[in-house]
Design a protein around this nucleic acid. Structure first.
Length: 475
DNA sequence: TGAAATGTTGGGGCG
DNA sequence: ACGCCCCAACATTTC
């Protein structure tokens, strides 16, 4: 019997359309699937919501592997060491995995590859997480792109439209299985308290991902270009966490959207969102940790305010601006926030409160089930104005207008802020403008049942513009 | 993947 | 009938 192959699962927790898995199959050898809870010192630990999802996704993957005669071996520790040790332990001929682009990981994987080679084990890396091999998306002069549109033009030209490779029906088992830790011992599911009751609608795992994609393509994709901005409608794909953990490949999403009988503007908008995901990863792959460093160094001089109480009010959804608070409460309850509302709440924190975008990034990192280093940091910096191809600094969302435009009937606000339910539609995004009778009739006592706005929009806007002027050395 | 300020235009009230 | 003014409504510029 040939020596076994180690198939190292990371954020590609699927059996279908998985290049590393296909490569392992081609070896025609026993396959040992492993997952390593990476405890490399200095590596950013996943947030609480992300750990919740990982717990379920690993359980799903283990069940799917069991169904084809295999197992998922669980280990924890510094991944580089764990993988080398296991390779030695089982006498592996090769270790195969899909590439990641988080800060430090590409380099670390390169080191691991060299170490494996030195111990006589073949390392093989594939692209399973992005539409194209990000290393191949280069400008004419061979450099990386810094703006989205040319990046996306070049990337799209490189996407190959081949058929998806199906999940195998059987995976050859080794003669003996290495020891595995027990998933329950990893404590990924929250305890004392278990705050995850609101997460019940999520279905982590490859099957849940496929069903979500199918439902999206059949329904919301048709009007995606319009409805994606409407938090009061189910217009988005909600695939982000499935994509983050690789329960579905972006190529599968690409193919499904292209094959769908929907208007081109709708499909193209969705594909562009996949493009932004790859764009963020490509920027992140340049090596700087963008959850720490401003992409645009001029922002190192930005006069952020130290405002712990205001930051906490934002986190808890008590800013007094209903569209912001609804989003923050959705996040807390469901581990998720509609994309349009993410932009509004991020703009509010960084521009109305002048709190450092890193604080917001850290909160989202801990609370989002789809928390992704490249996308989260990239999008926070995009909103703050410091990011690659960022929104101009003067683009300050008006939380009242944004609410009225994208949640016109107030259904989203009412869902997450029940204490405002009985306010009329025309006042629900600005309760403080309601007269005393209207407030009394709606059972709203400002400052008691619902906060007054913590800043005045016009004043906050002026203050933000002044802060940006100061950064530019004009004050 | 904005919003506010400023500028322009044209219909209609009015002397 | 005509010019003047007001002010939506829309366009452009600025932050």
């Amino acid at each position: 019997m040939p020596a076994p192959v180690i198939l190292w699962f990371r954020r590609d927790l699927r059996l279908g359309d998985n290049p590393a898995l296909q490569a392992a199959l081609r070896k025609q050898a026993p396959v040992i699937p492993i997952y390593v809870l990476d405890q490399t010192p200095g590596l950013r630990a996943p947030g609480a919501a992300s750990r919740w999802w990982l717990d379920k996704s690993l359980a799903a993957l283990a069940a799917d592997l069991a169904a084809i005669g295999s197992r998922l071996v669980l280990r924890r520790g510094p991944a580089e060491l764990v993988v080398q040790t296991l390779a030695q332990e089982v006498g592996a001929q090769a270790v195969i995995w899909n590439a990641l682009f988080d800060p430090g990981l590409a380099e670390r994987d390169g080191d691991l590859g060299q170490a494996l080679t030195d111990q006589g084990v073949e390392p093989r890396r594939f692209n399973g997480g992005h539409l194209v091999d990000l290393n191949l998306v280069r400008t004419r002069t061979g450099g990386p792109y810094s703006t989205f549109t040319p990046f996306w033009r070049a990337a799209q030209a490189l996407v190959t439209d081949g058929p998806a490779t199906p999940a195998p029906t059987r995976l050859e088992a080794p003669t003996s299985w290495p020891d595995s830790e027990r998933l329950a011992d990893w404590g990924l599911h929250p305890a004392a308290p278990d705050w995850s009751q609101g997460f019940g609608d999520w279905r982590p795992g490859e099957r849940g991902a496929a069903e979500r994609l199918e439902a999206f393509v059949r329904g919301p994709l048709t009007h995606y270009d319009q409805a994606r901005d409407r938090p009061d409608q189910a217009g988005t794909s909600r695939l982000s966490a499935h994509l983050h953990f690789g329960e579905i490949s972006p190529r599968a999403c690409w193919r499904a959207a292209r094959a769908a009988a929907v208007p081109a503007v709708a499909a193209d908008k969705f594909l562009a969102e996949l493009g932004w995901r790859d764009f963020c990863a490509a920027i992140s792959a340049r090596g700087r940790d963008l959850a720490v460093e401003n992409h645009d160094r001029r922002f190192d001089a930005f006069p952020w305010r130290d405002a712990a109480a205001e930051l906490e009010a934002w986190r808890r959804g008590r800013t007094g601006y209903p569209i912001v608070d609804a989003g923050m409460r959705e996040l807390w309850a469901n581990g998720y926030m509609h994309n349009r509302v993410r932009m509004i709440s991020a703009s509010f924190l960084t521009k109305h409160l002048l709190v450092d975008w890193r604080e917001g990034e850290a909160w989202f990192w801990d609370t989002l089930v789809d928390a992704d280093h490249a996308s989260n940091a990239g999008n926070w910096q995009w909103v703050a104005g410091s990011g690659a191809d960022a929104a101009p600094y003067f683009r300050i969302f008006n939380p009242i207008l944004q609410g009225e435009t994208f949640d016109p009937g107030g259904a989203y606000v009412r869902r997450w802020i029940p204490e405002l339910t009985r306010l009329p539609d025309r006042l629900i995004h600005a309760p403080w403008t309601a007269g005393p009778d209207v407030l009394a009739q709606a059972g709203v006592r400002l400052g008691e049942t619902y906060p007054r706005p913590m800043v005045d929009h016009a004043q906050a806007r002026a203050r933000a513009l002044a802060a940006y002027a100061e950064m530019r050395g004009e004050a």
